[in-house]
Amino acid sequence: MMLTFCNDFDKMNKKDLDYIKRLERQDEEALQELYFSFSISFMKFFRKYGFTKPEREDLFHDSLIAMYQNIIQKKFTNMDVGIKAYLWGIGKHKAIDLLRKKKIRSAEILKSEDGIEEQNGVLTDRQKLLHQYFSALQPSCKKVLKLFYYEGLTINEIVSLGNYKDANSVKSTKSRCIKNLRELINKGRHG
């Protein structure tokens, strides 16, 4: 089955740019607005590929979250496409994966060259263990590690957010948190 993709989406417009800015600031209300705007049309669009309603709903949720995470992590760089096209593009990639999982021969399915990075929530066993330790950290530690490794902020950018006194304070918090994480890992290994 050939998975085609509409190219008739609007290009990035002022409204889209506004949404991108809001999402970059991690304004989850903006994400909710997009959820309500696109939910029905997304579900309708992917119905023709034979997915069930729960599958389409999961597909939509995963795509929306992936889009949001990519925007936060500055992986959304192709400003030629609008938000809708970008979201549908992610949806298409995830749909391909889903079709593959469902053992549908989809060798001819084309992955377009729109550079959409996919990062699914599939963790290795080691990563799952690390996730457990990470979840056990103090909220302040999780927050600083998130700023570093999820949002990809530099020390100075983190300072500018206003929650830390200076760069040394950020550095020391980060070191302490990594140390705590290591201790948890070691405890896990030996206990």
Binding site: I65, Y68, Q69, Q73, Q119, G121, L123, T124, R126, Q127, L130, H131, F134, S135, K142, L145, K146, Y149, Y150, L181
Partner: peptide, 14 residues
Amino acid sequence: DLQKVVREDERQRL
């Protein structure tokens, strides 16, 4: 791994 885990943690929250 940590980066992937942080992203996954955030994904689960979302």
